[in-house]
Design a protein around this nucleic acid. Structure first.
Lengths: 180, 180
DNA sequence: AACTATACGGGGCGATCGCCCCGGTTAATA
DNA sequence: TATTAACCGGGGCGATCGCCCCGTATAGTT
């Protein structure tokens, strides 16, 4: 009486929308019509709006989910003294390669202010970076901000490379990051 | 009688529009309203449409002009046996840093099929690249396509870097491009 | 099984933007 | 200076999209 259990279809549809929006944003960028997401999820446009009052809130939710997973992985690696900085970079690139929205989120200022996951990821990245710098495997004059821009650029490269050339952009950037 | 000289105001307005569109696209990207360009040029929206029947044609004209200058410079350097490959890269970055539309054009497939200037630029780049590879200053396994993607990524980096860190992204990429 | 809160779907409003037309004006020619 | 073709400006049409409302159906509670 005080509270009622949430309805099963409500939760199911919310998950469907999140899933569909994830695919749609990844494929077509942030400008996909909401109706396209709705029909992809098999629900009406009104349903989308009820779960996510504004388009931005939907985008934020989607990106936050992806970012959260990445942040988890980053924290995990940051805690491991044997972790390889470059390995994380490669994983990041693999994730973002086929995800337009995620790639943009990683670069834009939206990631920082967007939510808590972005900050966690940034912190993990900073920790990984300074460890790599102390071990001498990354040039010491690089700041975290530099790194963000560089990662964004590397992701741009990878997305523009044909499938049979994947990895070469990242390889070039990594080579440039090492001490010389 | 057979033909009449073009009117002075017509040519003047066309030039104004091209100039205004160049600034507008560079600052705000390809999505600026046509009316914004019109008011910036000090003409009516109808005038813009008469000179450039579609928005795409205006964008193409603007990009082609910029691309043409870059292609000229590229061909000039390609003809000079002492020319430095990395110097051209730096010039390219300097141009594209404050030019959103140009940067996107350099990366997207639009540059190739867009017009003849893009192809000239690509050819000059290819010539510069193979010369640098033969002299041993660039890793030999890189293709021209790779280079395009890499340049696009480097431009992305530079645009995301704060002013006091400009150049570091390019520096990293260049270092990665060298033989190792 | 009856009840009620919650969710669903589709249609519609308002704003934005690209594109185009039309009446008035201006520059080039004779 | 008279003529005429080209150009100018602003207003408007149609399409798109985000956002929201409301009548109906359904899931959870008693």
């Amino acid at each position: 009486m005080a509270h009622r259990s949430p309805r099963a279809d409500g939760l199911r549809n919310r998950a469907r929308i999140l899933e569909a929006a994830g695919q749609a944003f990844a494929q077509d960028g942030p400008d996909v019509p909401l109706d396209a997401i709705a029909s992809r999820a098999g629900v009406g446009p009104g349903t989308v709006h009820r779960h996510f009052p504004t388009k931005q809130s939907l985008l934020t939710a989607v990106v936050a989910a992806r970012l959260g997973r990445l942040a988890d992985r980053g924290e995990q690696l940051a805690a491991d003294p044997d972790a390889d900085f470059y390995e994380f970079l490669a994983e990041l690139a693999g994730e973002a390669r086929h995800n337009l929205a995620l790639a943009e989120a990683l670069g834009g200022p939206a990631s920082v202010e967007a939510d808590e996951a972005g900050q966690r990821l940034a912190a993990a990245l900073a920790s990984l970076l300074s460890a790599a710098q102390q071990s001498g495997s990354v040039r010491p004059d690089l700041t975290v901000g530099d790194l963000h821009a560089i990662i964004t650029g590397a992701l741009t490269m990878e997305r523009r490379l044909p499938p049979d050339r994947h990895g070469i952009g990242l390889q070039v950037v990594m080579q440039g990051l090492r001490n010389w």
